[in-house]
Amino acid sequence: MRPSAARLLNILVPVKRTIDYAVKIRVNPDQKGVDLNNPFDEIAVEEAVRLREKLKDQVKSIKVVTIGPPKSIDTLRTALAMGADSGVHVEIPDSAPSPEPLGIAKALRAVIERQKEGVDLVILGKQAIDDDSSQTGQMLAGLLDWPQATFASKLVVDAAKKEANVTREIDGGLEELKCRLPLIVTTDLRLNEPRYASLPNIMKAKKKPIEKLSASDLGVDLTPRVETLKVTEPPKRVGGGKVENVDELIAKLKEAGITAVKA
């Protein structure tokens, strides 16, 4: 018997373009945005690709979506080279301020609602390394009224039963959840190690379709609601000094106003 269409999974992976964690950044750098992928999002893409490798034809589609300026398309190409099938780019102008998690979650909901075959599983990074908000996945689950399994370190999906077992690393141990699909999963660092994009796949990725949309196409407003007052660098560390002997050390301590406590 042929499996019915309803059993096939459609996976959506939202990704965000951030500055690479290997790059030393400064506040207000003049050459901004050296690169690409939020590492937790890379893990999300990798997990979707691994699910297909495990479940074979039961995974019907893997779609990646990003919301960001024109250059964000590189992030999609990388995800496509890793093995996603198609992309959606919700483009915002370079000059626009960075959208906030709620705006992003609403945009993602609109993207999901546009998918004719629906979406069974959304895998996204637990947070982006630029703003560290860690809110998008949770808000999206709330907006859609779907179950959520956050900070996943293991994901096992049973496509036939439309169920997933998710292991989460929590304080003091591991928590295992059984969830019904459709489901929101956010990824933790230990879920997997993302692959390199191989040349044949990079070539193929160039031919994969990317749908371009705008916020107004989705009927959402991405204007931030929170006003950023100030961004500053952490205070510079002041180097320590060496002392020649104990007496000098005690003298320095006294100088700094530290005195002995009588027992």
Binding site: D20, Y21, A22, V23, V34, D35, L36, N37, P39, T78, A81, Y196, A197, S198, L199, P200, I202, M203
Partner: peptide
Amino acid sequence: LLESLMESETPLINTGVLSQSPSQFASL
């Protein structure tokens, strides 16, 4: 270069991986 290598009739390479980010650059 990579395209001409991959598409050549007598390819010099099997395949390869291209770094996609500074962290992958460092890791290679």
